[in-house]
Design a protein around this nucleic acid. Sequence first.
DNA 1: TGGCTGTACTG
DNA 2: CAGTAC
DNA 3: GCCA
DNA 4: GTATG
DNA 5: CATAC
Length: 662
Amino acid sequence: MPPPVSLSRSLETCSEEASSSPSVNVRAGATTRTQKTKTSSGNKKRGRVATLKTRPEVEQIFEGLSFFYIPDNDIAPVRRLRINRAKEFGAEWTRDMMTATHVIVEKKLVYKDVEKLWPKDGFGDRAPPKVVNEDYPLDCIQFRAIVDPGQKKYLLDGQVTTETKDKEVLLPTSGVVDSGPGTKSKASSLPLKPQHHNKRKWDYVPPRGTPSQGEESSLMKSLPKANARSKTPPKKDDELSEFISMMQEFKDLPLDVDEDDDAQSTSVGSQHQVDLDQGSGSENERPSKRRSSRRVRPTNKAITFKDRFACNRAGRKDAGQDNPNARTIEMLQKMNSYYERVNDHWRTLAYRKAIGTLKQQTVKITTEEEAYRLPSIGRRLAQKIEEIVTTDKLKRLEYAEEEPTNSALQTFLKIYGVGNKVAQQWIAQGWRTLDDIKQHVKLTPSQMVGVEHYDDLNTRIPRKEVTALGEVVKRAAAKMDPMVQLIIGGSYRRGAESSHDIDFIVTKPGTESVAHLKSFLNTLVAQLERDEFLVARLASSRAGSDGSKWHGCCVLPKIKGLNDDDEEYRPIWRRIDFLLVPEVELGAALIYFTGNDIFNRSMRLLASKKGMRLNQHGLYRDVLRGPDRVKVTEGELVERRDERRIFEILGVTWREPWERWC
DNA sequence: TGGCTGTACTG
DNA sequence: CAGTAC
DNA sequence: GCCA
DNA sequence: GTATG
DNA sequence: CATAC
């Protein structure tokens, strides 16, 4: 594999600006097709400027800004294109730094190079221009917003940051550059989101009238979007498109690559085409900054089989507040709940996994590439993460939340017994509020309770109260059968500070089937109902079935020292569940009822990959699954009593309940 | 391109 | 069984 | 949405 | 009606 | 619940 010498040479030709960035050209050359080899004169003038488009006013994001480029010319085709792009969006190209609002520096250069050009006398009264690398304008265009120029990703080599926060800005010598007004840009960005196949699904449909929503594959990113915009029908032959595709391919590559990159690639060295240049060993782990489609997951970060399962990665609660990615997580969670609402089951799953991954990060994830290297974060999510970090918002989410039916959906789904089908149906019938529902809809008994006690049932239960409720039940139970054990599971067992409901695992030494506990539960429930502790029954075993659970509502009685201080004690309805578990199955049941659900699914998935099966009853092996993965054989029971043994057999290192937050 | 945990209860 | 819940 |  | 899906 | 026994 001889290095592409010839190519690079031809490039150099076109890069008359010598000293600077031969590399750029290399690429251009390599891409041949673009301007046939002989880029020079003829083609060059072929009115690129003439093709300058004017974009709709709303897109004039750079209005009032003037960019000073370093190097100060537009000889290199790529830079010329970039300058023109900036102009399209309202920027002025200035050749005088004194009038510039931003100094756009080629990545190959370091901060010192900028200092050389920096006016010795400063800028007088006016704020000095912001110094950023060439990614800055591109990102602004991509997000259709003036993003914070102080972000790390726009720093030059050798540039020092002033603040430790996210928004640091570097100041040139005399510098007093703050991130300036509008660091939190409010500018509108365009949606970047390919709508999906998602057959037969009521997928989200962007509100009409909003700016192009469209298709835009993740690989296409910003530029193509422009052409595809509704208003201006794309012109196939537009020569700009040629550049566009070229830009897409290279815009994220450092402009220096190639043969000379060598040495300290501390810079955003890229090793694209690593395979080409022999040994040079640039195959360091540098996350290739390219955003092209080519998937190059760094191989160095080998993820072992078992590490791919969430149940094997540590996780504790809390990962929230102080987490450096809190903002990102918050936004993704909103997207997640949106997809939950529209019943996009699998996307919801993907988001939850990604959020889990993010929660475990100890450093802030800033760029797409950085995010992409993490497990369960693919291109699409990585892009969204970068968008959030860069613009502090997510366009896709804004559209989603604008959906008029969205709020009604959100309301209805929080009613016990109402899922997506029913909620959609109600909305289709025109109902939008709880009142509408109360008046016009025939509810099932469960839904009735759900509506009547809507607020109570959607209020989280403080841990302290869960404990208190637990005591009430345990006391009653002990009175009727001291041998029975009640274990509070769910998030409480994981150590949560508040829970959505209370889960009791009801078991008793010596029991081998739920039948042995059924009568006890009936008695217990009956008693607690008389005590007016249990106030509603939502679901309980059907006659014939295994009958192992009971769902209902309860209220905490007035208790000395806990809630008797207020003259007005109002009982709050709480969701309560009982699960009958024969003692022999306690381990499996504990795993199941401790969760969280991602943890459980992960454990079960791992089990199934190992030819085993895990459910609330136990761990089985040699499960035979027929042709359509239909379970043919139950499999042989391996373990069910001992929680730890189940972990062991699955090859999962033991994790305490409070370590099962995924 | 197909899978994505596995089960119990309601109506 | 579809829908819902866990 | 992610992944094998 | 009761069982089944 | 809808359908079947």
